[in-house]
Design a binder for these strands. Structure first.
Lengths: 161, 161
DNA sequence: GTGGAGTTGACAATCGTTATCGTTAGCGCT
DNA sequence: AGCGCTAACGATAACGATTGTCAACTCCAC
């Protein structure tokens, strides 16, 4: 236990929040740090449970408020479903590829999907908003391992540092 | 008031339901006929309200049950969101293009989007499930008219025959 | 350190959806 | 056409996720 990369990103969190135009508060730091590094989106309830388990006193109402402020500032993406799930996302334009097996999300720059844009426009006179369109499928990891897990339904602890 | 094409499709409805392996009941006929021909998905609440306005005594519970049976049989597609919305869809493999302006849904055969499949697979080692991935964007009609309506949020009466 | 605006926390209310259960109706069979 | 079994229905209550309210509390500029 020497030099310590313990909470080195404490300031990085502040930097992200400030850049997003949000004031820096304890709840926002807590939620952001819980979200950072996770591949799978988590629900508000999961955020609440995980924070409580970690000793936080944050209320469920505040969890929702914080997540909304993040979504409004564009630093998290909201995934629709029976319950909404949240995940930190990059500031630049990108598409979301959601694995149906393991639930993890892959972000790819919009440039990559220009072919789809072109095809849709030509075929259906439709200009796709790739950033808003979550694409479901199977990621390379799961295709290889052929696993069966349900994902997006089971708890998702143990995916972030 | 002559020959009458009044309820000519009464039997067509029955044919669809039977082909889907569902028994034919009054509530299922009513919901199906309300859904048929609509470009925009409707919520369970809207189905309920519209049917009630039309004199039906169908309960909200039954609306959900009927919609679920339709979804299970594959004759409607469920659109995720704050509230779920339902729309009749074709039996063959297809992608859904959802207009963010007017809310209408365009179906395109899967073949059309093979390019996207290929691009995603090569770039992210990801095999897209095009049938499950609703793509949001702006349809040709709205791009031309440049209208501002909210859609998917306002009531959607007056879109089906 | 102080003040004011923005944020938080607890509680209650709301909304969409599902479970329960007694009643009813579809439909194969006679 | 009538009978009976099973599936479907309707009303009500329950449920879970999300939002509204409002007093107490922080963040941060001064």
């Amino acid at each position: 236990m020497g030099g310590g990369q313990a909470h080195v990103d404490g300031d990085a969190t502040a930097r992200v929040l400030r850049a997003a135009g949000l004031t820096i508060t304890v709840p926002r730091r807590a939620v952001f740090q819980l979200l950072v590094g996770r591949e799978r989106p988590v629900s508000a309830g999961e955020v609440f449970d995980l924070l409580r388990a970690g000793g936080s006193r944050l209320g469920i109402t505040s969890v929702y408020r914080v997540l909304h402020s993040f979504a409004g500032a564009g630093i998290v993406h909201v995934f629709a479903g029976e319950e909404q799930r949240y995940r930190i996302c990059d500031p630049w334009p990108h598409a979301h590829l959601v694995c149906e097996r393991c639930g993890r999300v892959i972000e790819r720059p919009v440039d990559t999907v220009r072919q789809w844009l072109a095809a849709a426009r030509q075929d259906a006179d439709f200009v796709a908003n790739v950033e808003r369109s979550d694409v479901y499928g199977v990621c390379g990891r799961c295709r290889i391992s052929g696993q069966v897990s349900e994902a997006r339904r089971t708890s998702t602890v143990g995916d972030a540092p």
